[in-house]
Design a protein around this nucleic acid. Structure first.
Lengths: 188, 188
DNA sequence: ACCTGAACACCGTTCAAGT
DNA sequence: ACCTGAACACCGTTCAAGT
């Protein structure tokens, strides 16, 4: 036994963190393992599947209700628990370079049948769950894109503008949008 | 004068519609124009720029307040006008194959400075505008991905399940999520 | 101004063959 | 079971040169 599926996923996450999604090719993951590109296809049918496994790993730490569904958070009301799950999801994605893109693409493919959506649906209903998830994915993607652009701009532009209006409070922006949706859920 | 920038963008949109985003390469766009791939770089600095121009074209028909800002929709309240803009945006993206992906990627890059976001911000505030846009983009992407999967599944699976619960009411799902956000805006 | 021709440095995936 | 070696059919981009 030389490399397991878990080794491949771990190597892929290392390449992702070090080089970003656009450079996370099958060939580079193979190189990270010291193996020929074709060897990866013994563990995984294609790149899309590998990305889905990476997405699962990225969000693996998110707590989706500890015991059985809805039971662990019995002291919290639905909206409050939903808010906690979304915040954890966002943090997990932002912790990995391009994590939001990887997770969003993989989860959009399963919309309607993901663990996170099912759990959120118990808390706030199917429509509320979808709305919260799509907002959370979209905002996380925008956050990482903005940070990437800022990091790149800092290299070439010094920091002559710093922030046109100081208005890149991405965390605050996320929470305020979340508040809007949660408030809307209470009405319906 | 053999080809203009407009010709290049139009050819790219033709390839997109016919072959989808994953096959919309610079080389295929060049072939569509009967030209060498390198010729495209006379009109456009890189592929990303071409995709942004395609995105602009896809949403060009969306009415962002006819006369001056906020004036044309004086008979509508803010939330109602915002709902109309979002629905038009969604329809424009869904009208083109992979349109949601093209527009989302290009717009996420400008989040905080797009025409649509500025207009929506006048109607419902910056946080409301961002929330509505991210939700609308995300839902449109999920819609097109679901349709693509359904079309592909129909080819191999016949239609043995048809719909597990008849629950692929994507348009209804979108509107109900929009209702949640709009209701939340009214509270804040 | 607009394009060709040729090249550079890559991709994902397949497949026979090895151990 | 896991991997190599070689190939196939592609990519985006650059650049000197043509008209």
């Amino acid at each position: 036994m030389r490399n397991s599926l878990a080794d491949v996923v771990a190597a892929a996450l290392r390449v992702l963190g070090a080089q970003g999604l656009e450079n996370c090719s099958m060939r580079r993951v193979a190189a990270e393992l010291g193996v020929q590109p074709s060897a990866l296809y013994h563990h995984v049918p294609d790149k899309q599947t590998l990305l889905a496994l990476m997405a699962d790993e990225i969000v693996a730490g998110v707590n989706l209700g500890a015991v059985s569904a809805g039971q662990a958070e019995s002291r919290m009301d639905g909206p409050a628990a939903a808010r906690r799950v979304c915040a954890e999801l966002r943090a997990a994605m932002l912790a990995v370079r391009d994590g939001a893109d990887v997770v969003s693409t993989a989860s959009a493919f399963r919309l309607g049948s993901s663990l996170a959506e099912d759990y959120l649906a118990e808390l706030v209903g199917r429509d509320g769950a979808r709305t919260l998830l799509l907002y959370t994915f979209g905002h996380a993607q925008a956050t990482q894109m903005h940070r990437h652009a800022a990091a790149f701009g800092a290299l070439i532009g010094g920091d002559q503008v710093s922030e046109t209006s100081g208005a890149d409070d991405l965390d605050g922006s996320y929470v305020r949008g979340l508040d809007i949706i949660i408030a809307g859920l209470a009405v319906a």
